[in-house]
């Protein structure tokens, strides 16, 4: 990166670092509102980083500015796109957080239910479900029991 134009870039570099660090910190929280704030901060940090990737300088207007002293317009265009995208995603995340609060009373991200069940089964040293190589001959309706399916089912569950 050349420093042909104005703009102390060290401040920007520090800003990127601070934004990213605080953003990651907040992302590690469980509450969706804080995660949302983390996403916003991290997004801003990344956007600044892209701005840093281009050369700084004077406004990139075709007339009037010498090409060598122009700032890089491409990174500015990319930042604009990225800002719009981050804005949209943030809005959606805010909606999800609100909906979560509306439905459950708080906006904490919960553990997955099935995961918890699998962990409990593992703690009791059990298999996920009955899979003992099929039924014995007495259980197989094809071989023994000609009765109606529903009743057989109920009997099986009562036993």
């Amino acid at each position: 990166m050349t420093r042909s134009g104005a703009g102390p870039t060290l401040v920007l570099v520090l800003a990127v670092g601070v934004f990213a660090a605080t953003g990651v910190m907040l992302l590690l929280e469980r509450s969706l509102t804080r995660i949302l704030l983390g996403v916003i901060l991290l997004g801003n940090g990344v956007n600044l980083l892209i701005l840093l990737a281009g050369r700084s300088g004077e406004a990139p207007l075709v007339d009037g500015v010498d090409g060598g002293r122009m700032s890089d317009p491409l990174s500015q265009a990319m930042v604009l796109t990225a800002i719009v995208i981050t804005f949209g995603l943030t809005a959606f995340l805010a909606a999800v957080a609100y909906r979560s609060w509306y439905l459950t009373g708080d906006d904490e991200v919960q553990d997955d239910l099935e995961d918890r069940q699998v962990v409990q089964l593992a703690a009791r040293n059990e298999v996920a479900n009955r899979d003992l190589g099929g039924e014995g001959p007495g259980d197989d309706p094809e071989q023994v029991d000609p009765g109606p399916a529903r009743r057989r089912l109920r009997r099986a569950t009562e036993q």
């Binding site: 995340l93 999800v96 979560s100 439905l103 991200v109």
Partner: peptide, 10 residues
């Protein structure tokens, strides 16, 4: 869906 969706979104 909101519970699992929030993980996916983040």
């Amino acid at each position: 869906r909101i519970r699992t969706g929030s993980t996916y979104v983040v």
